[in-house]
Amino acid sequence: MLSVRGLTKSFGGFVAVSDVSFEVSEGELLGLIGPNGSGKSTTFNLIAGTLKPTAGSIRFEGEEIGGLAAHQVCHMGLARTFQIPRPFRKLGIRENVTLAAYYGRHGRVGRDEAEALAVEALETVGLPSDAATTTEGLGAAGLKKLELARALSTQPRLLLADESLGGLDVAEMDQAAEMLERIRTEKGITIVWVEHIMGVLMRVVDRVIVLDHGEKIFEGLPADAARDRRVAEVYLGTQH
C-alpha cells in the first residue's frame, strides 16, 4: 500500500534520514520506533508532505507522493496526527473536526455531511460531539484524541500516528493503544504508528521498524526486535 524506497533527507550537511526503505501492506499496523533524533519524525513528515525528500521515492497505492504538498497528500487518503497536538484554538472541538472532514475530502462532501463525519469521528475517539464545547478544557489525552478525530474524519486509508502516547499516563497509554488497534480492525484503516516508547507499542503492532541515526537497523516482528542486539544497544546502550 505504501512503499518507501531509498528515502533520504538532509538539512545542509546533516543527514536526518539516510536511504530508508520499507513497505506497508494494506490492513497492517506497523510500528516505527527509534530513540530521539533517530529520524522517525522526519521520515513521517516526508511521507505526510510536510517536508520534501532530498532523494528516494514514496509511493502510495502505486502513485508517487514524494514532494507533494501536505494538503495533496491528505486528499489522496493519507492522514496524520502531530506529535505535539496542534488544535485550532479559535474553533470549537466539533468545528475542528468538521473542517478536517470538509477539506480533507477535497470538496467531495457537503457541509452537513462533513458535520456528520465529524460527529462520527468524535464518537470513535470518545470526545463530546456537541457544537458548543471548546478545546479549552482538553488535557493532554483529550488533545491527542482530537488529533486522532481530526485525522480520522478526513476518511483516510492510511493513518500516520505520530508519537501518540507522549505525555500520557499508563492507563491512558493502554487506552490509546487499544483505540489504534480498534480503528485498524473496525474501520480497516492501515496504520503507521511512530513512537519512542516501546512497551505498549510492541504489544499491539504486527511488525516493527527501528531507526537509529537516520538508518533502518531492524525490521520484523516485535518479539524478534526485543531479542535483537542492535535494537537493545540503541535503547539500552552498549553492554561490555
Binding site: H71, C74, F88, R89, T98, L99
Partner: peptide, 24 residues
C-alpha cells in the same frame, strides 16, 4: 462559509491546516 473556519485555522497554524487538507 466553511472558508471562514479554514482561514481561522490557517491564521493559527498553517502546517496543521495543510495536514487536514486545506490548500493554504
Amino acid at each position: 462559509g466553511m472558508g471562514r473556519a479554514a482561514m481561522e485555522a490557517v491564521s493559527e497554524d498553517e502546517t496543521a491546516a495543510a495536514a487536514v487538507g486545506i490548500n493554504v
